[in-house]
Every structure is written in C-alpha cells, then in structure tokens.
Design a binder for these strands. Structure first.
Lengths: 332, 332
DNA sequence: CTGAAAGCGCTTACAG
DNA sequence: CTGAAAGCGCTTACAG
C-alpha cells in the first residue's frame, strides 16, 4: 500500500478511500491511484481491513447433516447471495453433536464470523452463562416463538396440497411416512396430511401413519409394513424424497407396480428425484431461493438495516412425475 | 484482554503467552490468568491474531460442481481434518466458470485464505501476469506433470478391477459408459476398462464404448443406445454411479432384468448407491479419507513441514451388491 | 478533496 | 519467567 501511495504521489489514506469510497476522491487522483494499483499489482490485505472494521465478511451456515442433498441446494443459494453481498460462507454439519454447535458460537465470540444461518431446527442449548445470541437467521426449519427472522415454506399447506392431489386421483386409502416426530417440520407435514384427509371427508386413521427418520432405509421399512396390511393403502405420502424412494423399492419387492397399484409422493425434490425410476412426484421446495433469501436477510441484519420483521414464507410447487396415478379399479 | 491483564495483575503479553505457548509461563501465573479469563469470559479476537500472524487459518476447497454427492463426502473429510488442525474450510463450486476460479485466487492474494485444495481437475488458466500459485494440494483429480502434491486413487486399476469382476462372472460382452473424455479421470477409467478386457483376452470394441457426462440422464441415453444393438452387452460398467443408475433405468424400460439379464457396475459409491433398486455394485472411493489426507497435506505445507513428495494413492474397494450377477445362459 | 495520525487487538523479539 | 514496546496493514474522524 505504501508503495502504491509513493508511486501515485498521494497518502495511504487516499489509496484506501479510492478503494472504499471512490466518490470522495477527485476523479483525476482516482485514476492516478488506480493506475498505480494496477502497476504494482496491489491487493488490499483483508486481514488488516477486517481488524480495522471489526467484521469478517464471513457467515456460518449450520446444517443438520451435510449428506442430506437438500442442504446442498440450500448452500448453493446461500453462497450465491453471499458472493453478491461480499460474504464468504462456512458450512458446517452439526450431526447432532451439540458440542459442535457450541463450537460455532465460539467462532462468533472470537470474531471469526459475523453471523449464523441456522438450518438445524434447534437453538444450541447453552451452558450456564448463556452468551447473547449472535446475529442469526433461521432457514428451512423454524423455532416457534423464538422471534428470530425466519425464511421457510408453509409445510402444513404444502403437505396438504400433495395429499389433495392424491385425493383428486381418486385415492382414499392414503398412508403417510413421517420424519422424526420431535422435529417441527415432520409434525407440520403430518398435520397437513391429516388436514387434507379431513377436508376430503376421510377420517385419518393412525394405523396408516408410519414413522420414519428421513432415511431411504426407514422409508423402505415403513412402506413394507404398510403394504403387508390386509387393507393396504393405494397411495403413500412420504415426508421426504429419500423415504419415498425407499417406499417405491418396498412396493416393487412386494410385487406392486408404481404407479399402477401404488402411488408415491415425496417431499423436497432433491436432485435424484427426477432420476429415480419411476421419476418421483414430489413437493419442490425453492431451496436455492430460500438460501439466498436467508443470506440476504442476514446481510441486512448485519448492515443494520433489517427493515423486515417476521417470517418470509416462500412458495412450494407440486411436481407431478411418474410415481403417481389414478387409484386402481378394484381398490375401492 | 486488558481487563483480563488487570484482573490477573500481569501484562497483556503474559495473557497472550498463556494462550499461545503456556509452557513459557510459570504454572502459578498461568492459573491466575486462566481464572481471570474464565471470570471475564474473554475470548481472543481472531481478527487481531490473524493480522498479527499474517495467516487466516482458512483454506478453500474448490470443487467442480457442488451438486455431485461425491464432493460432499470429500468435503466431510476435509472439514473433519480441518477441525482437528484448527482450520476453517470455504467450499466453493466453480461450475465451469473460470472467472469463479480466479476469484478464489484473488482471495488468496487478499489474504482471505492460506491455501487451496483443488478438486476441479484443472489449474485455473491465468491472465497475462501469471500470479504465483498459492500453497495448493490437488485431490481426487490430478494434474499430470504439475508436480503439485496430490491425493488420489488409481483410477486405471480401480476400473480394471471392476471389469475383472464382471469377467469373473462370465461376462464377455461388457460395455462402458465414459465420463467427459477431456477429463483425465474419465480417460483413466476407460483405460482401465480396456486393460481388463485385454487381460481377459477380449479385444476392446469401440462400438461398446458410449460417451456420457456423469449425469443420470446421459447414462440412461448411453445405455438405451447400447441395449438397442442386435448383439447387446450383458454387462455395463459406468464411470460413475449416477450414470449406472441411468443405465439401470434404461434396462428396465427395455424390459431387461438387472442383474438377471444385465449386470451394471458404477463408480464412487455415493450415498444413494446402496439405496438404489437394485442396490448398486460399485467401486468405492475412500472420499472421506481422501479429503482428510488432502487437508493434512495442505496443513503440513502451510506449516512448512511438508516432508512428503509426490502422490498419495489411496485404496479403492469393489462393493458387490445387487446389480451384478452371472452372465445369462443364452447370452454367450 | 487530501494528509497526518490514531488505533483496531493481538503477538513476539528484545531486554531484564 | 515477565514486561514494555513495536508493529501487522489497513480505515476513518479530524483538521485543513
């Protein structure tokens, strides 16, 4: 920087101003400075700038389990918005290890990051001396009554919409494979399932609700059990795509054609959903957009101009593909 | 820090030493300092430390396309090693946009990161004034004759091993779906395929090599074309799992049972491979370990004690699942 | 519009 | 083993 200043015949303050707020510098000076910067190949040292400004331009994205492809799409959205806003993104999977979550809060205390995008569905439980919450935006998941800015979808309505569609196709015996029920997202999707059934005049039957844990394996097991029933369902709505894929596998093993004898609907529209055989009908979340929106809100928060309040609720889309069809003739 | 120093009755230098090199501080002083730190709830400011030490403790992981699940596993490995070594990881997908790669090299120049783990398969082409390469380790991919420290598998041998296995099952008519052929990994796997065939006394037939681009769709199209032949293959070796999945889908559409009438082998062992129907036989890469190993080498490099030279070549494993079986009776 | 100077919060070579 | 002091490379309030 000193070299640039010498070459341009100005002070280092002017170099800095040219870079940070060029409008405060006379055009002629600015050009001289830019030429010198170019000549020397100068790049400002972010370390020094960060210290001076007491900001890192880095945010942390905390996800539940990184292997879930849904989070990947979320990350893409976060990253592209971050790039546009001049931030870097540190993604980290927590994998249900609370100490890892806390490690990330320490990173904020140590000023390694400016804020957090929380996609884990729960605030880290804090030890004795509860540190103040860092600037934070919740995405995908939400924390009821936390008052934190949140970017999400309406899981109840989206799930109900999927089941509505099955009803439209003539299905009455619609089963549901849930996610882990302590989680609010799983509960919301279950609620939507029940709401749609009632709306269609069908009394929800608890025996047609099977618990899964979002893995393909659990979807497979749950569906296998449901299909062993004497009166078996003609449609299964799974709370995510992986479980829907497991359900299709179970149907095939039971000798049932999908969608001829069993319709299956998933949730998320992960990358693999359209590649699956049969291509999966599923509720698409705008994951890119959700990530970008969360990053934008966090950046606003950090810039001190968070005008908005409450939740951003984004739209979902039911993508009808090959895994759903009209109810089989003899089934009703 | 000043507050801690006052409370402990020492200078800030001693606080710093207690944290950085505790052995240089008398035990009694150390305890007093630690108590004061605890009392005040002091956390050192990483921004200041970074500036002082001229290091960021951050590395960049550059991947080709983030949606590829393989990179996810790589990231996990990198991240866990990074955590152990005190580094943060910035993952970024380049998505074949060269300007993005360059952006990451700028980040090094601006001292936002200390080094790069390159998983893109190509050095960013640099503009006119070629800047010096940053501390860098290549992983998964490799750059022939670059002399850069590299962590990889032996793609030729691994591919040959997969084809050997098909030969063992009695297959003679073994087709191959390649990745994009400009890429060295795709070429290596093709080379391994040919080598195994020759070893088995089968003359490679170019008509049984179909080009794909690593997507499920391309695997589907390539396999569909192969299966339309009058003499159709009894086995397909695909250069990655997604294409193998597409191939299975094509087989089913052609009314062929997998593995009864067609065996399919993939490469990578992504998360979905075992969930696929039928569960995919595939060459498992030690992706976690590769990532961790790359991060370790980069950390050594940055610490100035990179003793090793040349490539780390890790072992692959053929995971035999349900998509492969003996050659059908009438086929030979 | 520009410069001189202070200061961000650490770490570390040096002196004792 | 400990302290006083310099300094990392910027940015910015202040003065002109």
């Amino acid at each position: 920087m000193k070299d640039v200043a010498r070459l341009a015949g100005v002070s280092t303050a002017t170099i800095s101003r040219t870079l940070v707020s060029p409008d405060k510098v006379r055009a002629e000076t600015r050009e001289r400075v830019m030429a010198a910067i170019e000549r020397i190949g100068y790049a400002p040292n972010a370390l020094a700038r960060n210290l001076r400004q007491m900001r890192t331009s880095t945010v942390i994205l905390l996800v539940r389990q990184i292997v879930n492809p849904f989070y990947l799409e979320l990350f893409r959205g976060v990253e592209s918005a971050a790039r546009a806003r001049g931030y870097n993104v540190l993604m980290s999977n927590v994998e249900s290890r609370p100490e890892r979550e806390l490690a990330y809060f320490d990173m904020i205390r140590e000023r390694r990051a400016d804020g957090v995008i929380l996609a884990t569905g729960a605030l880290p439980s804090r030890r004795g001396r509860a540190p103040a919450l860092p600037p934070m935006v919740v995405v995908s998941e939400y924390l009821p009554r936390s008052g934190l800015p949140t970017v999400r979808i309406d899981n109840v309505a989206a799930a109900a919409g999927a089941v509505d569609y099955l009803v439209t196709l003539g299905h009455q015996r619609i089963a549901h494979v849930t996610g882990p029920l302590p989680e609010v997202l799983s509960r919301d999707r279950l609620k939507g399932y029940r709401r749609a059934l009632r709306r269609a005049g069908i009394e929800p039957d608890e025996r047609w609700v099977a618990r899964g844990d979002y893995t393909t394996r659990s979807g497979h097991a749950a569906a296998a059990a449901l299909l062993r029933r004497r009166r078996r369902p003609t449609a299964i709505f799974a709370a995510n795509d992986e479980m829907a894929m497991g359900a299709i596998k179970a149907a095939r093993e039971a000798g049932l054609d999908v969608p001829g004898q069993l319709s299956v609907v998933g949730f998320d529209d992960i990358n693999m959903a359209s590649a699956w055989d049969p291509a999966l009908t599923t509720v698409a979340q705008p994951s890119d957009e959700m990530g970008a929106c969360a990053m934008d809100r966090l950046a606003d928060l950090l810039a001190g101009d968070d005008t908005r309040n409450g939740d951003d609720v984004l739209e979902t889309t039911l993508r009808v593909r090959e895994s759903t069809g009209p109810v089989p003739r003899r089934a009703n």
